[in-house]
Design a protein around this nucleic acid. Structure first.
Lengths: 130, 130
DNA sequence: ATAAGCTCCGTACATTGGTACGGAGTCAAG
DNA sequence: CTTGACTCCGTACCAATGTACGGAGCTTAT
């Protein structure tokens, strides 16, 4: 079996080589030893770790938070839970923001739709200081 | 009445002086002429324009979009409306994203709460590649 | 008239998650 | 053995929205 070089795993994971190097620089994954001759090759653990990272990103965690999660591996569930609770409350707060925004935009747009004078716009009016 | 220098309007609008300069560089507001001697002073229109910008930001528009909105002043309501519709759909999409996220986190957390073995964590497990 | 405080200007830095570039080394195929 | 592809490494750059800094000039109060 041929050793897995960086481009192999990039292809396998469908991410950019540069992204892998970026994770290495960030300390999210270990950079494999560079052999006396030849290129570095990447063990299974690195692949798994990157998959972990990508899944956590889909859950909305930042790379810093993921680093935290990774270090919490084999640590009390309570700590992981706390981080997730925190993230959940941030998500809820952001949703509330967006809901306010949605409401405001809907109201403005409904005014526009009722407006038959195309030369002035209720949205512009609402933004204009009195 | 004393002329309004940049720090006066910054205080009045409760924003940073640097932010005003930043808007000038971005072309969102005009930089007043520099008088033969003394400092620039800022007319009412600039204040109003910055208030417009701030309100539009609260509606979730980016500075680029706001520049667009400002140029649409006195232009057909239809164009403004289109921009607002576009923004509204982006808001709804983002909300849907967050809702998925919220659901996923809630489910994981409820597994944590049901978990009485503090040495392993369902969240970590779920992120771990099989 | 001098010091304190403000303005002006250009530039660099911060954040987050990467992407791009350039040169040197290395490897595999022909 | 040469050519093309790949790696390695450091550094610079992207978006978006500001914030910070440093030095020089100007104003205002004492």
């Amino acid at each position: 079996m041929s050793p897995r070089t960086i481009s192999k795993i990039a292809k396998e994971l469908e991410i950019n080589i540069e992204t892998i190097r970026f994770y290495e620089r960030k300390g999210l994954i270990d950079q494999p030893e560079k052999p006396a001759q030849g290129y570095r090759h990447y063990p299974d653990e690195t692949l798994d770790r990157i998959r972990f990272i990508k899944r956590a990103q889909e859950l909305g965690f930042t790379l810093d938070e993921i680093q935290n999660l990774l270090s919490l591996n084999d640590h009390p569930c309570g700590q992981v839970q706390a981080l997730a609770e925190y993230k959940l409350s941030a998500v809820k707060a952001k949703m509330a923001d967006l809901q306010r925004l949605d409401k405001a935009l809907e109201e403005l747009l409904s005014q526009c739709r009722r407006n038959d004078d195309d030369t002035h716009c209720p949205i512009i009016d609402s933004l204009q200081p009195k």
